[in-house]
Amino acid sequence: MQEEASESCEVTLKLPPFWPQKPDIWFCQVEAQFKLKKITRENTRFDHLLAGLDPPYLENIYDLVDSALTDKYTQAKNRLISIYKESEESQIKKITSGLELGSLKPSQLLRKMQSLAGRSDFSEKVLKTLWLEKLPEHVRSILVIAEGDLNKLALLADKVCEVREVDEIQPSRSQYVPQSTASTNGNSLEAMAQAIDEIRKQLCELRSRSRSRSSSVSRSRSVSRRRNNRPKFDRNGKFCYYHFRFGADCKPEKCSPPCQWEKENENRQRQ
């Protein structure tokens, strides 16, 4: 008892807030702290657990406080996990239909699915199939011919997803497929990743050219519209071409009859 009291008094420990959605992960954090602080006794661990839990969670294990059990911490841990941990059926349902890629990277989605699968009977092959079904078509088409474990495929999928606007810019294949890919092994993840990097660079260049052409065409159209909106010269109108074109800036020697500019000007001055 004296050694146990000494172990409890000498250690300062602050547990993280309890995580009811993932109690098993929370206990991994807690036990990592126990290991670092060399806290091994059940009763000492139980005391730290009591001190760190908020009242709504503490009431689930409060009956163990006065118990004579020698494994209070283990009992409390198993009880909290059994109360708050999702059932295996619920975890499987989330894996199959509750998770979507959304704004996540493919590797992040895979980590979530692996976390939900936990120690269930999901094989890596089944998990890979479910994961691939949640990825975009252009990513899936590359991964199905690639070799490697799930972790390597996840990194490759992240790189593929970085290539944007592939469907918006459709250059011929000779424009953007690197020559090196013709000689690389299609099953080599490193070669595929290098090819994707080259594609990304060339797509950026194509987008830049496309914006430049679009800006040039826009300016040309604007000038054309201004020209088209000008009134056209009427040979049978009141003014000669030069007064029609330059108005009061027309030189007298350029004016040709029957131009009524001077007459119109006199009338305006009288008014």
Rank of each mutant, 00 (worst) to 15 (best):
L58F: 15
A76E: 02
K94N: 07
L64A: 05
S120F: 01
L104K: 15
S123K: 14
L116N: 03
Q108N: 09
S107K: 09
S120W: 04
A117D: 05
V126M: 12
Y62E: 15
F122M: 05
L99P: 02
Y73V: 06
K125F: 04
I61L: 00
L130G: 01
F122A: 00
R79V: 00
I92W: 09
I83W: 11
D71M: 02
D63Y: 14
E88N: 10
T96Q: 15
I81T: 14
D66Y: 07
I81R: 09
S82F: 05
Y62Q: 15
D63A: 14
R111D: 09
I92Q: 13
V126C: 07
L101Q: 12
S107I: 02
L109A: 00
S115L: 04
N60V: 05
K128A: 05
Q75V: 05
S120N: 07
N78T: 09
K94A: 03
Q114A: 01
K125C: 01
S67F: 02
Q91K: 15
F122D: 00
K72C: 00
L130P: 01
K77D: 06
E89C: 04
R79K: 15
E86C: 05
Y73E: 03
T74N: 08
T70V: 07
D121M: 04
I61M: 02
S87P: 04
K105P: 00
